[in-house]
Computed example of a mutant assay.
Amino acid sequence: MIVRGDQHIAIAGAGGWIGLATLDLLEQALGDALAERISCYGSTERSLTLRSGRQVQQRPLSQIATLNATRIWLLHFAFLNKDRAEAMSEDAYRTVNDTISATVLNAVSTLPVEAAFVASSGAASKVTDPFASPAMRLYGQMKLDDEARFADWAEGHGRRAVISRIFNITGPYINKHQAYAIANFIMDALADRPIAVRAPREVFRAYVAIRELMSLGFALMADRSAPVIRFDSGGEAMELGRVAQNVAQVLNGGSVNRTAITDAQPDRYVGDDRVYTALRHAHGVEAVPLSRQILETADYMRGLVN
């Protein structure tokens, strides 16, 4: 990943999967300059440990507006995801996410932020889907609201908002291994178990590596051709049975046990790869093949399961 310019990079939600993976990429790009070029914020003050062993201090998100820097790029990864919507009351969930959004929006409005990367979600495309769960629709609506706020900020202040609806990603720091299909398949393969695909319907997913996604994100923040750019994460759409076969082949795993498909309603959660691919090509970002994504994700997970 190439980080163009000398902007200070503020990361809201640094301790989550995407935040930690991005910190890892920034460490590779900036080396020892990382400490002076980045500031991390999250729900609590704590130390974040990268794969290299480097410790990065995270400060409370409430302190983000006190950042002292002359040129800033802000990465907005802070949000309670769908699993929290399932566990909380709707009012509580809305209150927390509205507070997070308002805190970050205040920071981009009052600090010299030149560009912001807003990590939205593919759930924003499911708001009116009658087959989506109430938690998915609620999460998606709040992500839609967040997209609109930051687009308005960029257009009203002459700044740049790069808004990405993230569907399915791979790479180090992956979490929720039981919830994410590809992580579950990798766990089975690493444990020498048959890979189980339990969905009783066709399930389609498309994967991109975090390092690919964020390389594009940084390139787009540097491109000031328009105040707002929106794109979905892309990748080739595959049914989970085929994804599992890829995992088994790459990791020299065993068999794949695919539950019989008895439900005619497919589950399709993929972004617009045509726009994503066009943006990649325009900015010279190479695609990471699925086989490489699997290896890189498994390398990280292997250290967790052994």
Rank of each mutant, 00 (worst) to 15 (best):
F204Q: 13
V118G: 04
H281P: 04
H157E: 11
L25W: 13
F204H: 11
N68A: 15
A244L: 09
D83A: 15
V108S: 00
N246A: 14
N306R: 10
A14I: 04
A206W: 07
L23D: 03
D152P: 02
S101P: 11
L279P: 01
Q249N: 14
V203Y: 10
A115G: 03
S125I: 01
G158M: 06
R165I: 05
A123C: 13
L213D: 03
R37H: 07
Y41M: 05
P130N: 03
A179C: 10
Y173Q: 07
G156R: 11
E27H: 13
I11Q: 00
A181K: 00
A14L: 01
L80E: 13
F218I: 04
L26T: 02
S120C: 07
A10I: 06
T49C: 10
R51Y: 08
L50Y: 05
P289D: 10
T170A: 14
I229M: 09
A87Y: 11
Y276V: 02
I2D: 15
T99A: 13
W153Q: 02
S101T: 15
H281M: 10
A179G: 14
R280T: 09
T170Y: 08
R292D: 15
S101H: 10
S120T: 09
V285L: 03
I72W: 06
F218A: 00
G171H: 03
L216E: 09
V243I: 11
G16D: 05
G271W: 02
Y300S: 04
P289H: 10
A226R: 11
I38T: 12
V275A: 09
D146N: 08
A102N: 14
G284Y: 06
M88E: 15
M238G: 08
L61V: 09
E45N: 09
D272H: 08
A85S: 14
H157S: 15
G234F: 03
N97R: 01
S164V: 15
I38D: 00
A278G: 13
I72K: 02
R211K: 13
T44R: 13
G122N: 02
S233L: 04
L220I: 11
A179L: 10
S215V: 13
S233Q: 04
L213E: 09
R94N: 05
D91I: 04
E296N: 13
M142P: 06
L74E: 00
A29D: 09
Y41P: 01
L304Q: 11
D232C: 10
R198M: 13
A132R: 00
A226I: 05
A222W: 09
C40I: 01
L26I: 10
S291Y: 12
E147M: 00
R94P: 03
P112D: 05
V197C: 11
R201D: 03
T103M: 12
V275K: 13
N246F: 12
A135P: 03
V108C: 00
D24L: 07
A237P: 15
I9G: 00
A191F: 05
S233M: 04
N68F: 06
A179F: 12
S255E: 15
R71T: 12
M142V: 07
T95V: 05
